[in-house]
């Protein structure tokens, strides 16, 4: 109360400089994202050039991978990446949507918190731990399952090709199964967020018309959130394609293209990780980096499409 008035120095010029420095540095930090992305694209493209020079387009179309004879074809790895990611998505989609629907539409609020934590916990488990569990615990047990399934479905028209003879537990299918658990948290959390934006009036209206809960879900919730769910699934697909260590440990590491899901194979990221240590020649390293570039482009295309789908879906919903 009785403090004497203090002489206030005019801080404006100094303050303005500080303010500008602060703004500049935050701008720099933000721009770093752009810089890093450009650098990633530039450096790995540059290092991929040797293999593209010697193989040309054949790098993408040849299935033969024989570094000893300097033949580098990545087709079987691209195939393996696609197959494992597709298996993962096919298994994970019904499960993730089921969890998201159960969490938002069925579970009471006290259970809801626990269910959210459960899916978050799955995301916390490091991928290498899933890989370790897959290679030592799961894969040996799955051999019998695969053999039984081949016995059941082996003679069927389409399934017979997919469920072919199994010799080991490390297969496309095992990799797909592990991946499906790993991508469930990401699909579930986005699907949950989208589903929760369904207007309460839509749900109430459906129930008031006498719909059961399931009819309310199919009639009001799913049509509202289908766009966002498709986007969520694509983000999961992108994640599954780029997953390295878990797949590297359980896929069996052999360059094969076959419809048999119970055969061992290989994927882009897992072959990079697995063969890096033995890759001493410049051209083989270049081939592995070129596979990284392929993966980079593939995941960016998938993720961009996913983002576009999600954005369009939310805009449509907000506009309605």
């Amino acid at each position: 109360m009785n403090t004497p008035p203090v002489e206030v120095p005019d801080l404006r010029p100094r303050r303005q400089i500080l303010d500008r420095v602060f703004k500049g540095s935050t701008f720099g930090a933000g721009a770093l994202i752009l810089v890093v992305l450009v650098l990633i694209a530039w450096t790995i493209t540059h290092k991929s050039l040797p293999v593209f020079r010697s193989e040309g387009i054949g790098f993408f179309t040849k299935r033969k991978w024989a570094p000893a004879n300097e033949v580098y074809g990545a087709l079987s790895f691209i195939y393996g990446t696609a197959v494992t990611a597709l298996i993962a998505v096919v298994i994970s989609v019904p499960i993730s949507i089921g969890i998201a629907l159960f969490t938002t539409q069925v579970a009471p609020s006290w259970l809801k918190k626990w269910l959210v934590s459960l899916t978050d916990l799955v995301a916390v488990v490091p991928s290498v731990v899933f890989g370790l569990w897959g290679i030592i615990f799961l894969a040996p047990k799955l051999v019998h399952v695969y053999k039984t399934m081949h016995g059941w479905f082996g003679g069927w028209p389409v399934l017979g090709h997919l469920f072919g003879p199994a010799s080991a537990g490390r297969t496309f299918m095992t990799a797909g199964l592990i991946l499906s658990v790993m991508i469930t948290p990401i699909i579930t959390s986005i699907a949950r967020e989208v589903i929760e934006t369904t207007p309460q009036t839509d749900r109430d209206g459906a129930l008031a018309l006498g719909a059961t809960r399931w009819e309310m879900i199919t009639g009001a919730v799913l049509p509202h959130s289908i766009g966002g769910i498709v986007g969520a699934v694509m983000l999961g697909l992108g994640r599954a394609m780029g997953e390295t260590i878990a797949v590297a440990l359980v896929i069996g590491s052999s360059a094969t293209i076959t419809a048999n899901l119970f055969s061992s194979g290989d994927s882009l990221p897992s072959v990079i990780a697995f063969q890096w240590g033995e890759a001493t020649s410049e051209i083989k390293r270049s081939a592995l980096i070129a596979m990284g570039l392929t993966l980079f482009i593939l995941t960016i295309v998938v993720n961009l499409t996913a983002t576009a789908v999600v954005n369009r879906a939310t805009k449509r919903v907000q506009g309605a």
Binding site: I33, L34, L37, T43, I44, H46, P269, V302, N303
Partner: peptide, 27 residues
């Protein structure tokens, strides 16, 4: 520019971790 950066942050979050490793190796 901020919109572009926001968009690129999403893109970067989707880049597989193995590609980051290759990038730092080369760079």
């Amino acid at each position: 520019f901020a919109r572009v950066l926001r968009f690129l942050a999403n893109v970067m979050a989707g880049v597989p971790s193995i590609v980051m490793g290759l990038f730092i190796y080369v760079f």
